[in-house]
Measured scan of single mutants.
Amino acid sequence: NQASVVANQLIPINTALTLVMMRSEVVTPVGIPADDIPRLVSMQVNRAVPLGTTLMPDMVKGYP
C-alpha cells in the first residue's frame, strides 16, 4: 500500500506547507503520494485542512 500525505496539524487556508505540517500514512482513500512531500513544501493549501486529513490534489494550489 502506498503512503499518502496527511496533515500533521490544522493547516489554515492559504498557508504555505512546511515539512512539520505533513506526515506520511497509509490511508483510504489514497491522497497525494508521500513521495511528493518535498515538492509540496512552500505550496499553499486552498482550504483549511484539519489535523489528520489526507491531502488531495485539489487542496493544494499548483499541484501537480
Rank of each mutant, 00 (worst) to 15 (best):
D58F: 10
Q2K: 05
A48C: 12
L10S: 11
I13G: 09
P12V: 05
V30P: 14
M43T: 05
N8P: 02
P38N: 12
T53F: 08
A7I: 05
I13Y: 08
N46Y: 13
P29A: 04
Y63L: 06
V5W: 02
G31I: 01
L51A: 12
T53S: 13
V20Q: 11
A48R: 09
N1D: 15
L40P: 00
I11F: 02
T53R: 11
D58N: 12
Y63S: 05
V41I: 13
T53H: 14
P57R: 07
P57A: 08
N1H: 08
A3T: 14
T54R: 03
V27A: 08
I13R: 06
R39I: 07
P33A: 14
A16I: 12
D58G: 11
S24P: 07
M59L: 05
L51D: 12
I32K: 00
T18E: 09
P33I: 12
P33F: 14
N8S: 14
P38Q: 13
G52C: 15
V41P: 02
I13P: 14
I37F: 03
K61E: 13
R47E: 13
L51E: 12
D35K: 06
V5S: 03
D35Y: 09
M43S: 09
M21D: 04
T54N: 01
V26E: 15
S24L: 06
V30K: 05
Q2C: 15
V49Y: 02
A3M: 13
V49C: 05
A7W: 02
I32R: 01
M56I: 10
I13T: 11
G31T: 02
V60T: 00
N14M: 14
R47T: 14
K61P: 10
D58T: 15
I37L: 12
G52R: 04
P29E: 07
P29D: 08
V26L: 14
A7N: 01
V26C: 07
D35V: 13
V41C: 12
R39S: 10
G31A: 03
N1Q: 14
L51S: 13
N8C: 08
R47K: 15
I32F: 03
V60M: 06
L10H: 13
P12K: 06
Q9G: 07
Y63Q: 04
I13D: 08
P12R: 06
M59E: 03
M43K: 12
P57Y: 09
S42F: 07
V49T: 04
D35E: 14
N8D: 12
V26K: 04
T18A: 09
Y63D: 06
N46K: 09
M22N: 02
L19E: 10
D35A: 08
L10E: 14
P50H: 12
N8G: 10
L40D: 01
A48I: 15
M56F: 10
V27W: 02
Q2L: 14
N46V: 14
L17M: 07
R47V: 14
G31Y: 02
A34H: 09
D35C: 13
I11N: 01
V49I: 12
V45K: 00
N14I: 03
V5A: 14
S24E: 12
M21T: 03
T54Q: 03
L17D: 03
L40S: 00
V60H: 01
I32E: 02
T18P: 00
S4Q: 02
N8F: 04
P12C: 09
P57Q: 11
L40T: 01
V27E: 02
V6H: 02
R39G: 06
Q2D: 15
Q9C: 05
N1S: 15
A7M: 04
R39F: 07
Q9H: 12
L40R: 00
A7C: 04
V20L: 12
Q44M: 13
T54W: 02
P12G: 07
V30N: 13
V27S: 04
L17I: 09
V6A: 03
E25A: 08
V49S: 01
L19M: 13
D58H: 11
S24A: 13
V60S: 00
I13W: 11
G62F: 07
N46H: 13
L40N: 00
V20I: 14
L51G: 13
V60Y: 00
A34I: 08
A3I: 07
I13N: 14
I11L: 10
T53N: 09
M59I: 04
P57C: 10
R23D: 07
A48P: 06
I13S: 11
D58Q: 10
G31Q: 02
Q44S: 13
V41L: 14
N1T: 15
E25T: 10
M59W: 08
S24M: 11
L10V: 08
S4P: 01
Y63W: 15
N8I: 06
T28Y: 08
N14A: 07
R39A: 12
P50N: 11
L17E: 02
S24H: 15
P33Q: 07
D58L: 08
G52N: 13
R47M: 12
V6T: 13
Q9V: 08
T28W: 05
I37T: 05
P33G: 07
P50Q: 13
L19S: 09
V27C: 06
A16G: 12
I11T: 01
V20W: 12
P50G: 11
Q44K: 10
V49A: 04
L17R: 00
K61G: 05
L17S: 00
S42N: 07
G52Q: 03
P12N: 08
R23T: 10
V45Y: 00
G31V: 01
V45S: 06
I32L: 05
T28Q: 14
I32A: 02
T18L: 10
